[in-house]
């Protein structure tokens, strides 16, 4: 069901007006080559100073806030692991009431950050509730595909076959036995105005998705892919390259769902094999050729399904042209 979404407040970001002002300072304690903090920093650059952040427990919370230092220059609230969306609901409702009563000049933007465990597992209920109630906020899942903060345990967002400390490969297991949970489509099923996947390797695409997510009235969901060199056993220098390879291999397609319409924002015309992406990470090195073949076929199938969604949800009178990456 397609719905009209008002994007009139959206200002397009191009190579000419890139937002550089940072709201997470240097001196944060993320691991070398952390793409998660990179992604979060990019979201904040696009969001700007009039923003309140609600942060779930996890890597991003601990690396930015060990007392007495904070890397945040915007108002920031951390409560617990599973409730970032609920906390944001409360902040949003309060700002609504206070604005109406003349106690607050203008409602700020509200962004909730959580990792994949805090989103797809323990925080899924709170997220679903907040999306369904229609709060005007942006929920950002920073997906590094396992519980990294606690020591690389598997989550429902860990990809099939990956080695983690609780999905070890062995005689009787391939590693992670289940396919990655499709959080973006779960969010889209709530029929909220805006859902998108993003990657820090495609920074303009990411900036524009943040701008759109903030521009719409009501909830928006961003699912951002983020390399964890510590957890993926990859070279920290390759973190952004891995984010790019995940897109180029169709493992993590970039798309948005605007009022129910699926739009692939980075078309993958000449896909790289998944092995190009796998071989830079030790979490996949135990995979057998059969396993890789299975993964490749399912990745292709899912991308084809996404293309079918795009086709099926395109407005009848026109075919959507994807914006070109600058």
């Amino acid at each position: 069901m397609l719905r009209d979404v008002d994007l009139s407040g959206y200002e397009k970001v191009t190579a000419k007006n890139i937002p550089w002002e940072k709201f997470i300072t240097s001196g944060h304690r993320a691991c070398q080559g952390c793409a998660e903090v990179l992604a979060m920093g990019m979201v904040m650059k696009a969001a700007g100073p009039e923003t309140i952040v609600c942060n779930a427990t996890g890597c991003m919370e601990i690396i930015t806030s060990p007392f007495p230092q904070s890397a945040w220059t915007v108002p920031w609230l951390h409560v617990a692991f599973e409730n970032a969306a609920a906390v944001a609901s409360g902040v949003e409702s309060a700002t609504r009431a206070l604005e109406r009563k003349g106690k607050l000049k203008k409602r700020p933007k509200i962004i909730a950050f959580a990792g994949d465990g805090g989103t797809a597992d323990i925080g899924l209920q709170a997220l679903s509730g907040a999306l369904e109630r229609g709060h005007d906020f942006v929920y950002v899942c920073l997906d590094n595909e396992a519980y990294m903060n606690t020591g690389i345990q598997r989550s429902s967002s860990t990809p099939y076959g990956a080695m983690t400390t609780t999905s070890p490969p062995g005689k009787k297991s391939i590693g992670q036995r289940t396919w990655k949970k499709n959080m973006a489509m779960i969010a889209a099923a709530h029929e909220i105005p805006y859902v998108a996947t993003a990657s820090p390797a495609y920074h303009l695409d990411l900036f524009n998705k943040v701008k759109k997510a903030l521009a719409v009235e009501g909830p928006a969901y961003l699912h951002i892919f983020a390399t964890c060199p510590t957890g993926w056993r990859s070279d920290p220098a390759k973190s952004v390259e891995l984010c790019r390879l995940a897109v180029q291999s169709k493992v993590f397609p970039l798309y948005e769902v605007v009022g129910g319409q699926y739009i692939i924002t980075q078309k993958v015309k000449k896909p790289k094999p998944v092995t190009d992406y796998f071989k830079l990470q030790r979490r996949f090195r135990h995979l057998t050729p059969d396993a890789v073949e299975y993964i490749q076929s399912r990745v292709d199938e899912e991308y084809a399904r996404l293309e079918a969604f795009e086709k099926a949800t395109a407005p009848l009178e026109e075919v959507a042209e994807p914006p070109t990456e600058g």
Binding site: I52, C54, L77, V79, A86, V87, A88, S89, G90, V91, E92, S93, A94, T95, A97, L98, K103, L104
Partner: peptide
């Protein structure tokens, strides 16, 4: 809690 933190 979120609402209280926002001053409500």
């Amino acid at each position: 809690l979120g609402a209280a933190a926002a001053g409500a």
